[in-house]
């Protein structure tokens, strides 16, 4: 499975694509040097396919985009932040199972 449903966001388009989104957006903050980030990647891809149309599943590389992670005080990866109407509604640190992330998404979609 590819990650074609996953939206790759940057410091430049974070505001437009995440904060101003009309759907809930889950952002996976990751880096290539982080083993657990790689472990969680397939889960993110599955969620992107399953929530297509209902929520946006996005990834941000923290090495290439230092501004946004700093703004949200991220000092650990993977960190997953769920945004709704531009606000943080859930923050999950570490590689967790799909069920926990799906539950947060379901709650945000309401």
């Amino acid at each position: 499975m590819g990650d074609d449903k996953v939206l790759h966001v940057t410091d430049g388009d974070f505001e437009a694509k995440v904060i101003n989104s009309d759907k809930p957006v889950l952002v996976d903050f990751w880096a290539a040097w982080c083993g657990p980030c790689r472990a969680i990647a397939p889960v993110i891809e599955e969620l992107a396919a399953e929530y297509d149309g209902k929520a946006v599943i996005a990834k941000m590389n923290v090495d290439e985009n230092p501004v946004t992670p700093g703004k949200f005080g991220i000092r650990a990866i993977p960190t997953l932040i769920l945004f709704k109407d531009g606000n943080v509604v859930e923050q999950i640190t570490g590689a967790v199972g799909k069920g926990m992330i799906a539950a947060a998404l379901d709650k945000a979609i309401g």
Partner: peptide, 17 residues
């Protein structure tokens, strides 16, 4: 403070320090 400076994974989080 887990994820905000408290960590259990140096390879994941070391570069933030």
């Amino acid at each position: 403070l887990t994820g905000k400076g408290v960590s259990y994974c140096a390879t994941c989080d070391g570069p933030f320090f």
